[in-house]
Design a protein around this nucleic acid. Structure first.
Lengths: 149, 149
DNA sequence: CAGCTAAGTTAGTTGGGCTAAGTATGACCG
DNA sequence: CGGTCATACTTAGCCCAACTAACTTAGCTG
């Protein structure tokens, strides 16, 4: 019951597969919750910082990328700004748009949190067999395709 | 940047793999958010209802299973009770414990939401090739093992 | 029975999402 | 060139979901 450890593969029927995927998704969500609790930034904040790694972005871009409404992103950025992790700027070509970019501290925090997360995930992955890791690696592109309708 | 569609598999090194998994996890979280928004129960409520499918459970069990503190589960169950989806009971052997079980309406709601979710996921899966579905099915047991340290 | 432990609840705070409404700037058109 | 519409954000107010601290009630144990 509600245990995703035996999804019985070998059956590639979409209906049956959907139930297995659903159970695994639930498991992964719980896993994520546990591994991100108590970090110096929440998982949402971490995700937003990640969007800023390549340079300044506008509010609308950020909201769209994270699938939230603009007001939600405004509040999110307010918090990050208060924490000194990002800074707002202006677009010289259009006075309506606000840009957001990482501060030095923000970039440092991003990298630190990323290192920690990757390390923790790496530990879990090391517990797998080589064969299992290959299986997982092969499935990543498929998972990435999901929902790109 | 931040696009998980090209995780470059074939490399089963834990470190490299961890980054790919991390990116895909982020993608799946966004996907989940989009597909569960505006449903008749939130994804948390749905998860709790799912825990009750096999029969009554105690508060502590539920909190533990969902990796939340007891007060969080109390509030959660309060809402579900107000909505008429679950009912509280008592343990005859220990007057301290409260049990929680599905009402008829709760069970109906659970099944309806599950059908909807499975159906939506099934659509995504149908868009994949047979080969991709097999790859995904093979990876499910591996994903389920993650975090079972 | 006194005192500790265990199970839940209540209260208060924070984060994160939403809609509705407001402000300011750009764009377009008569 | 001025009025109107559209765009980019922000503000305000709501709900859900997580947390800790503190309280109540019930069981357990010396």
């Amino acid at each position: 019951m509600t245990d995703p450890s035996a999804p019985d593969p070998g059956e590639a029927d979409p209906g049956v597969l959907a139930e297995g995927v659903s159970a695994v998704l639930r498991h992964l969500v719980l896993l994520l919750r546990r591994t991100t609790a108590g970090q110096p930034v929440t998982s949402q904040q971490y995700a937003v910082l990640g969007s800023l790694e390549q340079g300044p972005r506008r509010m609308t871009e950020l909201a769209e990328e994270h699938a939230v409404q603009l007001p939600t992103m405004t509040v999110q950025i307010n918090r990050l700004e208060d924490a000194g992790l990002v800074a707002r700027g202006a677009d010289p070509a259009d006075a309506r748009v606000r840009t957001v970019e990482l501060t030095g501290e923000g970039r440092a925090r991003l990298l630190a949190v990323r290192r920690a997360r990757i390390a923790r995930l790496g530990q879990d992955l090391e517990a797998l067999t080589e064969r299992e890791r290959e299986t997982l690696a092969a499935a990543l592109p498929v998972l990435a395709k999901l929902g790109r309708t």
